[in-house]
Simulated scan of single mutants.
Amino acid sequence: MASYVAKSVLNDSIRQLKSNQKDSKQNIDWDDFNYPPLIKVIHYNIEEVQPEYRLVVRSLWLSSILIAVYTLLNIIDNSIQTGYGNDGIRILYSFMFLFSFNPIQFFIFYRGYKGVASDPYLLVLYKWIQILLIMCWITFSIVDILGFNGFITLSYLFDYLPFCGVLALFEDIILLLVVALSGFALFRIWNIKE
């Protein structure tokens, strides 16, 4: 008798929790553009995400912020390197990174956030683009091509331009942090049913 009552109470609690989750998904006002500050092009409110996925959404958000920091550091680093005689084209590459990587990472953040908060179908595209980006971030943290200052170039930079070496090291660490955060989010999101 006691186990029947316990199962009944547990089932009622689960049904109520699922009902509350459905209600919260339906009450999100996606037309309330409130993020990022000053620009306000998307709706973002971490409180509207189910508690078990808030850490995932925060890691996606932090990844997009870190990519913005990375691209700014890359511009500064490549500008200094150009001032010391490296190819000036590195600055152009840095600005190309700024105007391509930031929107892509922001799209991934928003796609993951909206997929977790309301529409798991959006996570299909998120998963594949996130895998591609993780492979890119790993590659960019290693190579010395175009305007990337990967681990391969650190010994050269520390020998001839120590300040640029420190900036390049920070760039590579930021990319590895983005890989870790994105990988964590992808791992947690992968099992959500579309």
Results as ranks from 00 to 15, higher is better:
M1I: 01
A2P: 00
A2Y: 01
A6F: 07
K7N: 11
K7G: 06
I14G: 02
I14Y: 04
L17I: 02
L17R: 01
K18V: 08
K18E: 14
S19T: 01
Q21C: 09
Q21M: 13
S24H: 07
Q26P: 05
D29A: 10
W30C: 08
W30S: 06
D32F: 12
D32T: 08
D32W: 06
N34W: 12
P36I: 13
K40V: 10
N45G: 10
E48Y: 09
E52Q: 15
R54D: 10
L55A: 13
V56P: 08
S59V: 09
S59E: 09
S63C: 14
S63I: 04
S64T: 13
L66P: 08
I67V: 14
L73T: 01
Q81I: 03
T82F: 08
Y84W: 08
L92V: 13
S94H: 09
M96R: 10
L98S: 07
L98C: 07
F99H: 08
F101D: 03
I104S: 07
F106H: 08
G112L: 14
Y113H: 13
Y113C: 13
G115H: 06
D119E: 14
D119I: 12
Y121V: 15
V124S: 14
L125C: 14
Y126R: 01
K127W: 01
I131D: 03
I134A: 02
C136F: 12
C136D: 00
F140K: 03
S141K: 14
D144P: 05
I145F: 07
F148L: 06
F148I: 01
F148W: 04
N149W: 09
I152H: 01
L154Y: 06
S155R: 09
S155A: 15
Y156W: 02
Y160D: 07
L161M: 07
C164S: 12
A168N: 00
L169D: 00
L169C: 06
E171K: 10
L175S: 00
V178C: 10
A180T: 05
N191L: 05
N191E: 10
